[in-house]
């Protein structure tokens, strides 16, 4: 970070030919820690796992690990993970958009708006183990809502088939951080919808629905998709909430991988790497789908 005292000298002298290179060095010196860090803790570990997925116990190139993913148990895990992630991302995105539209376009009081934004910041980070505790206290067998529904309305949600340890239980729990995340990410885009656009549409005879159909939603669409893919990846990789909620009873991919790493199951490092590779491929796919669709949708943007 030290600059050579040269910089002052060159004010009076003809710049030495070596000076531009010196400056370049300083710039790269500033960026270097970031690059090294990214390589060591993001790129290399990922690439290592990806390559390990194709190496057998004997050190030879093999597709056995990938083939090993195609068992009923593992496929079922992927399927339920995808379903939970897609459902919680989809509902979270729609609900988050609805709330954002309500506070910004529905002109709720400003104080309410800033309260919701702050709360969203908190709730989107309130994931993991404590969130699981909160939902057990709410919708668990002894949860407040469960008890109140039984006592006041004589509705036993557990007898009706609900279980906090199930697909819908987990989805409902994930929404607690998915919706706020959506609100935080989509609010700038909704703010960017100019009032003049809807006014112009109105003077041209468009109903409110026609405005949203032809102008409002198409403009929000790329941001919506981008956030949707992030929400999907967010849920797909989440493990702490599920683990604290269900132990290892719910068979989702991260829990399977967790058990594999802990050495509780499978006992096959190559298969573990293949599991991880599968997760990367799926979250990457979600993002590639987003990039492709938004590139088409964004041809009107700079």
């Amino acid at each position: 970070m030290r600059a050579p005292p040269q910089s002052r000298r060159t004010m009076t002298e003809i710049p030495a030919p070596g000076r531009p290179i010196r400056r370049l060095n300083l710039e790269w010196l500033g960026v270097a820690p970031f690059i090294i860090f990214a390589v060591m803790f993001l790129i290399l570990p990922t690439l290592y796992l990806v390559s390990a997925a194709f190496v057998g116990r004997d050190g030879q190139l093999t597709f056995d690990n990938i083939a090993g993913l195609f068992t009923d148990q593992i496929l079922a895990a992927y399927w339920i993970s995808i379903r939970i992630s897609a459902t919680s991302a989809g509902i979270g995105a729609i609900a988050g958009l609805a709330i954002t539209l309500a506070i910004i376009r529905g002109r709720l009081p400003d104080a309410l708006r800033s309260a919701i934004m702050t709360f969203s910041g908190v709730a989107s980070n309130f994931a993991g183990v404590p969130l699981a505790f909160a939902f057990i206290s709410t919708l668990g067998r002894l949860g407040l809502v469960t008890i109140i529904l039984k006592a006041l309305f004589d509705i036993d949600i557990y007898r009706a088939g609900f279980n906090i340890l199930s697909f819908w239980g987990l989805t409902l729990t994930y929404l607690y951080f998915q919706i706020p995340l959506m609100i935080l990410m989509i609010a700038p885009a909704v703010d960017g919808l100019k009032r003049e656009w809807s006014e112009a549409a109105q003077t041209l005879g468009a109903s409110s629905w026609q405005f949203w159909r032809h102008v409002g939603f198409p403009i929000l669409w790329p941001s919506f998709l981008g956030t949707l893919s992030l929400l999907f990846a967010n849920a797909f990789g989440a493990i702490a909430t599920a683990y604290a909620l269900t132990g290892s009873s719910l068979n989702i991919v991260p829990i399977l991988l967790y058990a594999q790493i802990r050495g509780d199951a499978l006992q096959n490092p190559g298969l573990g790497a293949a599991l991880a590779l599968g997760m990367i491929v799926i979250t990457a796919c979600a993002n590639i789908i987003y990039l492709v669709i938004s590139a088409r949708a964004e041809r009107w943007m700079r």
């Binding site: 100019k194 003049e196 656009w197 006014e199 112009a200 549409a201 109105q202 003077t203 041209l204 005879g205 468009a206 109903s207 032809h214 102008v215 198409p218 403009i219 949708a297 009107w300 943007m301």
Partner: peptide, 22 residues
Amino acid sequence: IPPNQRRLGMVFQAYALFPNLN
């Protein structure tokens, strides 16, 4: 009468063209 039934045309200071439409 609501604005979308008045059959008026309006031009705004900041153009207000719909950016997603050609």
